[in-house]
Design a protein around this nucleic acid. Sequence first.
DNA 1: GCAATAGTTAAGCAAGTGCTTAACCGAACC
DNA 2: GGTTCGGTTAAGCACTTGCTTAACTATTGC
Lengths: 107, 107
Amino acid sequence: MFQALADPTRRAMVERLSRGPSSVSELAQPLDMTLSAVVQHLAVLETSGLVRSEKVGRVRTCRVERAALQRAGNWIGARRESWERRLDRLGEFLERHEPPTKKRSRP
Amino acid sequence: MFQALADPTRRAMVERLSRGPSSVSELAQPLDMTLSAVVQHLAVLETSGLVRSEKVGRVRTCRVERAALQRAGNWIGARRESWERRLDRLGEFLERHEPPTKKRSRP
DNA sequence: GCAATAGTTAAGCAAGTGCTTAACCGAACC
DNA sequence: GGTTCGGTTAAGCACTTGCTTAACTATTGC
């Protein structure tokens, strides 16, 4: 999933799709590459679960899958949280072992 | 930056570092590969800005950079938000054009 | 001083990625 | 019924990645 987001073209596609669903050629239009390449990027996004699509008649309509986007966000959120918890523990530790100011003993 | 997170080994390293700073060989120990490979992964993480490190004596100590982690989270958050805003607009639209239930006209 | 420790750097390689071209298939339009 | 439209699929190719080995440097402990 991060693999899928690693490519700038693919991120642009997700960006486009997060503003509403789109057909494949609509999606391809602003991208300077063949339709074929876009379809291949789309396949990566689909197997990563970030994008879902369905074909009706001869046009395939694509949309982002909020659940997958959320999972990616959660991973990052968890790392950040654990980082911050660590800082908190450090803060507590310092507080316990080094009282408010330098005055070691209360008179 | 997503490029850096795309590799599972690198994600493991970030995971480890999010629980506290660590030396290079400490970081390498649970990973089934040479120290050399780990150093190369570390280089990727550093140029992506996700990890910072400094050498004192002969050991290099690494730590995650919360700002970078936050930026990654923000990108995903923005996409999700724009997705949800779109749903909201759709909801409003439907509400305006299709009153509460099927009963077209209030008695 | 000498050996062990901690890390760095370069060369090389197999596998993976991001394209392109080209041939193809099934609607939709005339 | 043929053509255009929207998309799919396969083959091929340059470039990048994720490793390894091997040779090297700079501390540290005895």
